[in-house]
């Protein structure tokens, strides 16, 4: 079993619901984004500055098979589960940020200050809270906690807490365009394997040799 995701760029409408659902469900500190949707070529968020074909690209942890972040971590805080998911043990991370230098996708986020200080800095209203309320441990390792402490690195954990309940990740469930699919990449008959095969699935930065478990399907039509 190798847990993978397929994102169909033809179906992505650029609404960023996935990024928002991810941020809310996973109680991400102010300023942290595990999941982001970019418009290639744009200066800011939505429009491209040069005449070109517009499409949207959601990016989060690619859960690489040859994950540089796992290999550089000096204490094994970042590790890979049997199904290929890359997780971070919040209780073991020493905050050296070597993994952030190692990741070619820029998906790792550091807690530069405590969640509380961050909320104040961003002027969230008092007592505004969000996110899955319970800590989640996998093999006795803390891979999700609603309260984040400063000084550790975090990123997409493939919604390990929801997977334990038989649920799909928040981004998959929240996508109004039905652009996201999860499944077993080792099974050639799984839906995700078929989609990759039939619709020219590709990965980001194949030249880096990271062999991601997140695949993209190219957009057929683009807005001009």
């Amino acid at each position: 079993m190798r847990r993978g995701m397929v994102i169909d760029l033809e179906k992505c409408i650029g609404c960023r619901s996935c990024a928002v659902a991810c941020k809310q469900h996973n109680a991400q500190p102010a300023g942290s984004w595990w999941n982001r949707v970019v418009t290639p070529g744009s200066d800011r968020h939505l429009t491209a500055s040069t005449p070109q074909n517009l499409y949207f690209l959601p990016i989060h942890c690619q859960h690489c098979n040859n994950a540089p972040c796992v290999k550089v971590c000096p204490v094994g805080a970042t590790y890979q589960t049997d199904d290929g998911t890359v997780l971070i043990d919040f209780e073991r991370c020493i905050g050296c940020r070597y993994c952030m230098a190692a990741c070619p996708y820029g998906v790792r986020q550091f807690n530069w200050e405590s969640s509380k200080d961050g909320m104040q800095r961003y002027e969230y209203q008092n007592n505004y809270t969000y996110g899955y309320p319970e800590p989640f441990r996998l093999d006795n390792r803390l891979v999700y906690s609603p309260v984040r402490s400063k000084g550790v690195v975090e990123k997409c954990h493939f919604c390990a807490h929801y997977q334990a309940q038989g649920l799909d990740p928040a981004c998959v469930r929240a996508c109004p365009g039905k652009a996201r699919h999860v499944g077993d990449l080792d099974d050639p008959d799984s839906r995700v394997s078929q989609m990759i095969r039939q619709m020219n699935g590709f990965t980001l930065l194949p030249e880096k040799g990271t062999r991601p478990n997140v695949y993209y399907l190219p957009p057929k039509r683009k807005e001009v």
């Binding site: 102010a30 300023g31 942290s32 984004w33 982001r36 970019v38 290639p40 070529g41 491209a48 040069t50 005449p51 070109q52 074909n53 499409y55 690209l57 990016i59 820029g106 986020q109 550091f110 807690n111 530069w112 961050g118 800095r121 961003y122 957009p219 683009k222 001009v224």
Partner: peptide
């Protein structure tokens, strides 16, 4: 970006600080 193949566009990263 599709349609402007000769530009190199860097994918930005959430700075994490406000």
């Amino acid at each position: 970006p599709l349609g402007s193949q000769h530009t190199l566009w860097s994918v930005p990263i959430a700075s994490g600080r406000y």
